[in-house]
Design a protein around this nucleic acid. Structure first.
Lengths: 181, 181
DNA sequence: CTGATTGCAAAAGATTTGCAACCCC
DNA sequence: GGGGTTGCAAATCTTTTGCAATCAG
């Protein structure tokens, strides 16, 4: 274990965790990963977390990132959004909220919805499933993707028939918009 | 191209597709894949589709299955549920309906929910996203997984503290319950 | 101390892609 | 006939795993 940049002195999300009760040993790696996921609202990928974690723990490995994310998820401390062939994104579950996921660029956004509580109960009663506090995910297009897609579709229609559901991946979005579908 | 078992003479889902308008050439491979996804309600994986497609088209390749699924998805003819490190599952979108996905075994179930229509509009207005007819996915535990998990948790608590969110993969579920989380 | 955790490198999957042969329109 | 499609095999990419060294309690 090499360079370990002094971590911020202000209170960190990982301080709030009762590690012993959760059944996990408290390590710098786990603290950094949890803090990264909990403190940013960008729903980062494992790769992004890896890059940023290295700024604090220079020799943390990608394997540890994945291992830690999986464990934190299993303990219910964070939530994962699977992304098909593309990387998963993670969310620090601090309070109950729902999600929007863009089917074009994979962006995940949070939203608070009071009304969903009743809906969960209804669904649970009708199906026998346990819906607890797990998120409800709406799928659709974020504004940039909707705009881009509309442009593409119009161009296609001017060229001739076909392409009713033309898709277009994200062109820019260098950092966190990996592209899901 | 070899053995091509006589396909069922009854009307098939793929007959309803206006291939030319969609902008795709009509091929036996595409018909079989679309028919399989549209005619079963089990939300199959690519692998499952491959195994079954071979019964009609003995030398169809897995690459074609994936390519076709991707294309059909891009054209809006089917819907994909990403599964992290685990295989995606597909759904033939015939009418608007919502989904339940088990966070333990990955099972996907359909459910009709009138009330969701208003909710979509509300979310759309509040966020500016385009939610169209894309599905809303509830996450939770299917009955078998909920039962199994409760048992595991109880056993853990009898042994001592910790394990508040213990996870357990599917043990049986040979055919279609791949395991997501 | 002692078992849990980590890094490293290699493995495992799922999905994609290059390319020549082939088939639908 | 010609360009869209397919099969095959190899490549890619994300995530997991085996194992010896190291660390937390």
């Amino acid at each position: 274990m090499a360079a370990r940049r002094p971590l911020p002195t202000r209170r960190r999300p990982s301080d709030e965790v009762d590690w012993k009760h959760v059944g996990l040993r408290r390590t710098p790696q786990r603290e950094v990963v949890l803090d990264l996921v909990r403190s940013c609202d960008t729903h980062p990928t494992a790769e992004w977390i890896y890059r940023h974690a290295r700024q604090a723990l220079s020799d943390i490995s990608l394997a540890t990132i994945y291992r830690t994310l999986r464990i934190l998820k299993e303990k219910g401390l964070i939530w994962e959004f699977s992304g098909g062939a593309n990387p998963s994104r993670f969310d620090g579950t601090s309070h109950v909220h729902e999600h929007l996921r863009c089917i074009s660029c994979g962006l995940v956004a949070d939203i608070d919805l009071e009304d969903v509580r009743d809906l969960r109960r209804e669904v649970s009663e009708r199906t026998g499933w346990t819906l607890g506090r797990w998120p409800v995910v709406f799928h659709g297009l974020c504004q940039p993707c909707a705009t881009r897609r509309a442009a593409v579709r119009q161009a296609a229609e001017e060229r001739g028939p076909g392409e009713p559901g033309a898709s277009s991946g994200p062109e820019d979005d260098r950092d966190l918009c990996g592209g899901f579908w």
